[in-house]
Amino acid sequence: MLRNNPLVQKLVNSSVWKSIFRHGWPDNPLDRSLIMTQNVFLHLHSVKVSKKSLKATYSFGLGLLTTFSFLELTLTGILLMFYYVPSVERAFVDIVELQTTVPFGQLLRNMHRWGAHLMVIAAVLHMVRVFFTGAYKKPREFNWIVGVILLLLTLGASFTGYLLPWDQLSFWAITVGTSIAGYAPVIGPPMQKILLGGAEVGQESLVRFYALHVMVIPTFLLLLISIHLWRVRKDGGMAASEISDENEAA
């Protein structure tokens, strides 16, 4: 079929192709495995998965949904950065202009907003699913902790993004939100001051939240998501097969 096509033959036999892909055509178990293990992106995933764990109603694909909403948010977020300036004079005007004069700007902003809501909801439901299927138990305790940090980072990304439109809702939401942070014992007041960059929500707060939102939090999210997916494989794939085996034996 595809493999017999002379153009494809020429391509996969070229020295450039062979320098990138060090495995042969995937028509045998070894080369199929090598596709996964020799690719930096795909190696996060298992070479083989249990048939039971593929049942849609076991995981509801919530982890994947969270991951893909992160990728969607990264893409739309980068595009939004081309038009948004984090200054108190420009931020709100830029958002209005983006929605009214930039082609697809309205669509882009709404994708980013609804994608953010989806990511938070999917992450929480994913956590609920992992809890109720007992998938946090040994040997997956470490990955549960990574997941909890990921949830906090997701909420942090959501919170810092809330201020950026610089409208009344943003302003007072962050005023109240950072005041709640100020109630934490000992670390509360200094944390509030560092977050705001001053005594109240202002230009310094906007720049700080922007830097956290577009750079700091996404970097840690990307790093931890990679570890999280890789650990799923290292901890023996999804917990589905083991648990249903126990049930059948009992």
Partner: peptide, 11 residues
């Protein structure tokens, strides 16, 4: 580095 500077204006 991240300590805010509160001199001048409000503050």
């Amino acid at each position: 580095f991240i300590q805010p500077n509160l001199e001048g204006g409000f503050g």
